[in-house]
């Protein structure tokens, strides 16, 4: 694959990251924000794998595996927290959960 091709893949990866960021910022329901975080994580994953494929380096996929592990851990804890919060707070509106402030 050529360099321009790689650049295109990287632009796509950036786009995935941006979309995920938009979701975190724009959605008020906590579950959607968690979902958007997953999308955000997929962006750099794509970037790693594409770069690894461009150069034929297994390190790209190795990084992808580590990112994946990170995502898994994060989802586990995140959803656990979500369930815990759902007992006492209104988790469809993250704006209402704002006691950690001045």
């Amino acid at each position: 694959m050529t360099d321009t091709f790689l650049i295109g893949m990287l632009v796509l990866a950036a786009g995935l990251f941006a979309v995920g960021l938009f979701g975190v910022l724009a959605r008020r329901a906590v579950l959607f924000q968690l979902l958007s975080l997953e999308v955000m994580l997929s962006g750099p994953s794509l970037a790693f794998v594409a770069a690894g494929a461009r150069h034929g380096d297994p390190a790209g996929q190795g990084m992808f595996v580590l990112v994946l592990i990170l995502a898994a851990a994060e989802v586990a804890l995140g959803l656990a927290l979500y369930l815990r919060m759902a007992r006492t707070a209104d988790v469809t509106d993250s704006d209402s959960i704002r006691d950690l402030r001045h």
Binding site: L25, A26, S94, R101, H102
Partner: peptide, 9 residues
């Protein structure tokens, strides 16, 4: 310091 996640993000 609003305490809102979206704002910090």
């Amino acid at each position: 310091q609003t305490g809102r996640v979206r704002d910090y993000g």
